[in-house]
Design a binder for these strands. Structure first.
Length: 426
RNA sequence: GGAGAGAUGGCCGAGCGGCCGAAGGCGCCGGUCUUGAAAACCGGUUUCCCGCAAGGGAACGGGGGUUCGAAUCCCUCUCUCUCCGCCA
């Protein structure tokens, strides 16, 4: 949620920022209109309430003195009716205003390049090189099926499209990656591991910005009482919802492994083959709560924490800054990490690291008290994948494939796989 | 699934129709004292809205009702806890 005062005081500036995300200035005008309607109705009800308070107090005094109060009571009753009417108007415009505010995306940071789509994203760095395989690389699904570690047909039999069954060393590789990533982030990068619920209430999703606008992307459970999380960002960012934190406790850094569930509505025909786009996948997520003045430094640290996973695994990747039009609803700045896939001969997203500034903190009401005392301020929230586990398996299968059809296991993972160096057909 | 209890300020907790934005404690901030700190003592310490200000209004989980007047009474929703049953 944006700061309403900022919209009131600098509507043109806000409109300019929103335009970069492709939102028309009309949205700002609608907010200003419902805001002034609300303020007008509120001011008038306040005036009437002051009057009622005053009269009621006098009635009480006169009753105590044994005086007649019928006429005065009738008068106040009438004022009460007016308050009820006007109060309803005020509540309606406030609800309208709130609804509009929830549908306005965050404003891109100044450091974000302009542009409507991914072709305007800016490549910041490239690490490593494509593997020199010396043969025509196979796609991960072909490799996995041939090795007997991925089974798409049986997954479809059970659950339909966009699911996979991992078997044997495939399942072990996924599990090894999860442990490796969690250990790296908790031991080397200072994150605290949390294991949150995978089912959340609507208000948690509203806090992160997934609701009300993107309900179609989610799986609803129990008639809508719960939603399956699309990412650990949701439960972990809401961990401190409605809390007033101490400044000394910031920054707070959490990492969480969870399954993620996405309906992928509207992605028909995209990445239908293989494991790139699934209804269910695993992710190790990094989440930070930061003081506003440090949040961009924290973003740099967070993205390099994510990069260190790719580097440890020896996977060729690049970092891009998403342009304004390609960023998500809630984000002020996003770096994507893209890993090289030899079979596609291109980079594919494997991590997305964002600073939401105070956008989510306003929605989830997460504040901190400055240590010298003073007014509470909203924290800044950040998160990033560290990494998407399924796509990491994809990258390893493709980048580490051998001429004989086996796959070399990256060194750091071997301790997590009983010292085994290869996955071969057995 | 059944039965009951509860939701008050940063935290704990009192209040149970007008004198309550709310006792008391803790925490925090400032001061006195001290070489410094602690302790003790004194003072301060919710948020939002309208207003240049003075000032006014709102908020005791959400919504509705009763009443001249609701933190306090009634209804309802949400959430939490306890006990019983079932269960990993």
């Amino acid at each position: 949620m944006l700061d309403l005062n900022k919209i009131r005081n600098n509507p043109e500036e806000v409109a300019r920022g929103l335009a970069r995300k492709g939102v028309s200035a009309e949205a700002v005008n609608r907010i200003l209109a419902s805001d002034s309607a609300w303020r007008k109705a509120t001011a008038e009800t306040d005036r009437l309430k002051a009057l009622r308070n005053d009269l009621s107090r006098k009635i009480g005094e006169r009753k105590k003195a044994g005086e007649e109060t019928e006429a005065a009571q009738a008068e106040v009753r009438e004022i009460g009716e007016k308050i009820k009417q006007l109060g309803q108007e005020a509540a309606e415009s406030e609800q309208l205003l709130h609804g509009l505010m929830l549908e306005i995306p965050n404003i891109p940071s100044d450091s974000v390049p302009d542009g409507p789509d991914e072709s305007f994203n800016r490549v910041e760095k490239t690490w490593g090189e494509p593997p020199r395989l010396g043969f025509e690389p196979k796609a991960h699904d072909e490799i996995g099926v041939a090795l007997g570690i991925l089974d798409f047909e049986r997954a479809a039999k059970i659950s339909g499209a966009r699911f996979v069954v991992y078997t044997g060393m495939g399942a072990a590789l996924e599990r090894a990656l999860i442990s490796f990533m969690l250990d790296l982030h908790t031991r080397e990068h200072g994150y605290t591991e949390v294991l949150p619920p995978y089912l959340v209430k609507a208000h948690a999703l509203e806090g992160t910005g997934n609701l009300p606008k993107f309900e179609a992307d989610l799986f609803k459970v129990d008639g809508g009482a719960f939603y399956l999380i699309p990412t650990a960002e949701v439960p972990v960012t809401n961990l401190h919802r409605d809390e007033l934190l101490e400044e000394d406790s910031l920054p707070m850094s959490y990492c969480a492994f969870t399954p993620c569930f996405r309906s992928e509505a509207g992605s028909y025909g995209k990445d239908t083959k293989g494991m790139i786009r699934q209804h269910q996948f695993h992710k190790v997520e990094l989440v930070k709560y930061s003081k506003p003045e440090n949040s961009y430094d924290e973003l740099e640290k967070l993205v390099s924490d994510a990069e260190s996973v790719l580097e440890a695994l020896g996977l060729h990747y690049r970092r891009v800054t998403l342009c304004a039009g390609d960023m998500s609803f809630s984000s002020a700045k996003t770096y994507d990490l893209e890993v090289w896939l030899p079979s596609q001969k291109r980079f594919r997203e494997i991590s997305s690291c964002s600073n939401f500034e105070d956008f989510q903190a306003r929605r989830a009401n997460i504040r901190y008290r400055p240590s010298g005392g003073g007014k509470p301020r909203f924290v800044h929230t950040l998160n990033g994948s560290g990494l998407a586990v399924g796509r990491t398996v994809v990258a390893i299968l493709e980048n580490c494939q051998q001429a004989d059809g086996s796959v070399a296991i990256p060194g750091p993972l071997r301790p997590y796989m009983h010292g085994q160096s290869h996955i071969a057909k057995r």
